[in-house]
């Protein structure tokens, strides 16, 4: 693992290279082609759309490295958002309400982890089941609240709207998490262990690695990150609605795969996840600023995803062919 990263070939071969390259291109296009890209409002909305999405994508990336994923993460965000606003509305103090939100994240993550890690249910089925349940609970609470917009205490709202040197707290928080995760995944034994387990589950068992425990822990981590994302979002917008987190599980998975992860596990980086998210946000921005109907955005994103997945498969096949493996 020498830092031979400066060699061009190595840079290109890194799995997150493609997404970083197209993100930069997109950035340049937006920066030169649009007058309002550097507008404060636009940058603000970019920051607050990137930060929560990135937090969720980090969690998803950790899971994908392990070879699993979580489709219930959007529902978890909805439940956390609604629960925290209910708690605040009923006069619970801010720290306690936030703690309650994290508690829900931990609980959902723990159940997912048990089902996938210990019981051995396929993550697709397990987390869809949990998604149904969590979503049902969230909407149930929602229908009782019925469009109540609680007045959040200022000490809570600041979490979503506060800035330091023009940068949102939530964005800074995301950057801190990014740094921690990057170091963790690269230079920490436990972080590396995610790659061992995701790369070869059976061999990991033989090495005596506890993959069950790891899966539970990482599901709890994504539960926590989803809770944080939900709290930042409701604090920013001043209310919790049922669309909070809706569909974010797919966006997160797509961002991660664009950023170099694979469903078969064993690869991916936090930086890749972030650039995947930035790319997706810039795409939205692109469609807004150039006033293209946003309905086309899905078409473009989906097509890019298919191309990325196909290209990854093609390159793997080619490599194996060159090695004479197939």
């Amino acid at each position: 693992m020498k830092m031979s990263g400066l060699k061009l070939k190595n840079v290109i071969q890194r799995s997150e290279f493609a997404v970083i390259a197209i993100t930069i291109i997109l950035f340049v296009v937006l920066a030169t082609g649009s007058d309002i890209f550097f507008n404060v409002n636009n940058l603000n909305s970019l920051q607050t759309s990137i930060a929560p999405s990135a937090l969720v994508a980090f969690g998803m990336m950790l899971l994908l490295i392990l070879g699993v994923f979580d489709l219930s993460v959007g529902a978890t965000m909805a439940l956390v958002g609604i629960s925290v606003s209910t708690l605040l509305a009923s006069g619970v103090s801010v720290p306690l309400a936030v703690l309650g939100g994290f508690g829900i994240g931990v609980l959902v993550g723990f159940v997912n982890g048990i089902l996938v890690g210990v019981v051995g249910i396929n993550p697709l089925i397990a987390t869809i089941g949990i998604k149904f349940m969590v979503q049902g609970l969230a909407y149930m609470r929602m229908s009782n609240l019925y469009q109540v917009h609680p007045d959040f205490p200022a000490s809570f709202t600041i979490l979503g709207t506060g800035k330091l040197f023009g940068i949102y707290y939530q964005f800074l928080f995301m950057i801190v998490i990014l740094i921690i995760l990057s170091i963790f995944l690269k230079n920490n034994g436990i972080g590396r262990r995610l790659y061992y387990i995701g790369g070869n589950r059976n061999a990991s068992r033989l090495m005596g690695f506890n993959s069950k425990r790891m899966i539970i822990i990482i599901y709890i981590v994504i539960g926590l990150l989803a809770a944080a994302a939900a709290i930042f979002s409701i604090a920013r917008y001043g209310n919790a609605n049922r669309y909070l987190g809706s569909g974010i599980e797919m966006t997160a998975i797509i961002s991660c795969v664009l950023g170099g992860a694979s469903l078969s596990g064993g690869k991916g980086t936090a930086m890749g996840a972030l650039f995947g998210v930035i790319f997706m946000s810039l795409m939205t921005n692109f469609f807004n600023l150039f006033e293209v109907s946003s309905t086309w955005q899905d078409v473009v994103v989906g097509a890019i995803l298919i191309i990325v997945v196909a290209a990854d498969g093609y390159l793997t096949l080619k490599k194996n062919k060159e090695l004479g493996k197939i």
Binding site: M1, G189, Y196, N202, M207, G266
Partner: peptide
């Protein structure tokens, strides 16, 4: 029992994580 996604070094020392959780 090898890990194809990892380096030769990491395949030789899979237990380095046991040497301390917070160590770099």
């Amino acid at each position: 029992a090898v890990f194809e996604n990892m380096s030769v070094t990491e395949n030789l020392f899979p237990w380095m994580a046991d040497e301390g959780a917070v160590r770099s």
